[in-house]
Amino acid sequence: MAKAVETQNLERVKSVRRVPQEEYYVPGHRTCQGCGPALCYKLVSKATGPDSIFLGPTGCMYVANTSYLCSPFAYPWMHTQITNAGAVASGVEAAYQVLIRKGKYKGKLPNIVVMGGDGGSIDIGLQAMSGMMYRGHDALFIMYDNESYANTGIQTSPMSPYGANTTFTPPGKAIPEGKVLFPKDAPQMVIGGHPAVKYVATASLAYPVDLINKVRKGLNVVGPTFIHIHCPCPKGWLFDADKTIEVAKLAIETGMWVNYEWEEGEYTYQHTPKEYTPVKEYMKTQERFSHLTDEHIAKMQAFIDAKLKAPGKPVPLPVTSPRESV
């Protein structure tokens, strides 16, 4: 694809005081109180500004955000199927490439952003996302991860953690832990197989300036980029609506979530705790884990320990995961 068109160059935000005051994701939606993905939308929209086109696959951030004649988006936004956000974004990007080249659209290539749920990004939407990443479209794919098929009533997705009580993995006598499988590693799937991708990051609602800057960095890169954002969901994870940020922070402190950037093969890590808190502390905050026994929690801790030492992900040593409290 010819990349002669003028693209965006968004400034880095230095502190929370410098975050744009303007809102491009405005009131009028119907998300739950304390909704992590909605806060994510707000921050991402501040990062992109109005010279943007957003694509929203079916999921909470479609269904709870838009109602006909009332839309919270101050930029052009289009619904896509849960299955095809990456493909629709590819079409929009290809259109802008040719329209700008032919002089039919005067202006820079807009920020083209997909806001996909975990299902719409890495499960039923995986093929389209991978297609967009592979072909090198100049667009940003954001996976807002609320760790379930939330909109349909909190069913298990490949991002639901081991042990989660979802409406498709209820704990019972025969299957006491609820969800038996461990989650996919979404950013690694993108990094591992898409030569056109030069920038992948993870971000957390607990660190909004970092999140905004990662979005801007992703948008400034010419070519496809991917950001995986941890978005606690009070309704699905069963915690009080005022605890969203606390839960997000605790995820980082326990190693349930790791903030990092990957740029052309180089990893950098952000917000790494000096000492990891046992994952049990994180799990205690959410009722979706309340049925788990110590044995299950130990299994989760072992998974995290292994992940933190995963090849390709240098972790400052020694990793302290005090398991004695489990």
């Binding site: 694509l55 290809a94 032919k102």
Partner: peptide, 28 residues
């Protein structure tokens, strides 16, 4: 022919790419 030629990853994607392009103002 001055056009973007996008290799879809399946027919589902083809149609999605085509209508995405049509939505953005290109003949697809």
């Amino acid at each position: 022919l001055d056009a973007e030629f996008v290799h879809g990853e399946g027919e589902h994607a083809q149609v999605a790419i085509a209508y995405g392009a049509a939505a953005a103002g290109a003949r697809a």
